[in-house]
Design a binder for these strands. Structure first.
Lengths: 209, 209
DNA sequence: TTCTCATAAATTGGTACCAATTTTGGATCA
DNA sequence: TGATCCAAAATTGGTACCAATTTATGAGAA
């Protein structure tokens, strides 16, 4: 569950921002696609106002791009930006490793193992979006062991900024399976308290190589 | 100049978001203060709509807090949050030091020295806001030597999240003067290419101790 | 045919009004 | 005197309409 735009009161009425974002992340709206207000209105059954507010919020987060009087388009990050964002994620996710290693209890490690298993099992029977969410959940749970409550929102935002189409993140089946293996390896290294090896693994995991 | 909300077309008509943000940063609106829509409308001479959009944007960035049907209040971060954000800033600003050291030319160093001087001179003759901007400019110029174009927006957002009242950041005159000295010291260490000493200095500089 | 210009359609963006909710003030009753 | 409840005022939030801008369409001339 994506909690960055958690403005919904009950689960029966999710915010339009979240709906549009999900459609972008699922690949429904490709990078560069024109998000016409009337179409969104019809698609989600929401008023013009809510759609406009949602688009403005997504534009603030640089998930969509806004050109005055010409509408909103799904943002497409170029290679340089993707690399820069990966670099920032590496600094943060490796930077907190010492604290994670220090804080992780046996229960935490069991929980992480479960999340890694869930990701692995979804390779076969899950949708792309479910896979994306499961991956997010694993990394989130890992980060939260740092005890830094702000880190989550920062990294969540960074992720969204690149992976406008997270579909393209795991191009091949082999790559997804390697990600799953690396998740397990991360848990192993955490259990064996090897911060340095963990750091290099995370770096390679984020760089996808 | 704060460029996070750079939606203004000409300089004659700055976005209401920027105006409100500046008033928060200058201490005009203290943490916890109630931002009544009618008052803001009158204060900035803008329509209701623009005010509402501005408040929504600030709420998204967690600079103000929104309670449905009860309005917007200036967010007040507690001590834990401030510490968490400081920790993130330290990871990022020390993490890029190697790249900064590698990239910095003699011209870059002259430029940084000038910005450090500007901050120093504003201690006597500048307003709190000018001091805040000068400090921001120094740190920005430093970061941008890393070549990472995304880092700027990430850190700018982090800064805004804590320093709702940047006034309170430099409580005493002595503290401001120490900051100015540390800026110069940063430039010195950069010039002498001492990444490790630079890292510890930056850490202490952000922690303000 | 093809380019240009004028007209019409579509889309975005802003304004004004109205409904819903909350807060305030005061009157009534214990 | 103090608490409770009701009515009025204030505030927020949403909807509908209209203006501004852009894009599409088609007619006419080279």
């Amino acid at each position: 569950m994506n909690t960055l735009f958690d403005d919904s009161i009950a689960d029966g009425e999710p915010d339009a921002t979240q709906l549009i974002l999900t459609d972008i992340q699922s690949g429904m709206f490709q990078p560069g696609a024109w998000l016409k207000q009337i179409d969104l209105e019809a698609r989600y059954g929401r008023g013009r106002n809510e759609i406009r507010r949602a688009l403005d919020r997504l534009a603030q987060k640089r998930i969509v791009e806004h050109v005055p009087n010409r509408g909103y388009h799904v943002y497409q990050a170029d290679g340089k930006q993707a690399d820069d964002i990966a670099e920032i994620r590496i600094m943060l996710e490796t930077g907190i490793v010492p604290k994670v290693v220090a804080n992780a209890t046996a229960g935490d490690i069991r929980n992480l193992r479960a999340l890694a298993n869930r990701f692995e099992s979804l390779i076969l029977h899950g949708t792309v979006l479910e896979l994306y969410e499961a991956n997010l959940n694993f990394h989130r749970a890992f980060m939260q062991l740092s005890g830094n409550g702000e880190l989550d929102s920062v990294i969540a935002e960074l992720r969204q900024r690149t992976s406008s189409a997270p579909v393209s993140q795991w191009k091949t089946r082999a790559r997804v399976e390697q990600s799953a293996r690396e998740h397990h390896e991360m848990v192993d290294l955490l259990e064996r308290r090897k911060p340095d090896k963990l750091k290099t693994l995370i770096e390679n995991h984020i760089r996808q190589r």
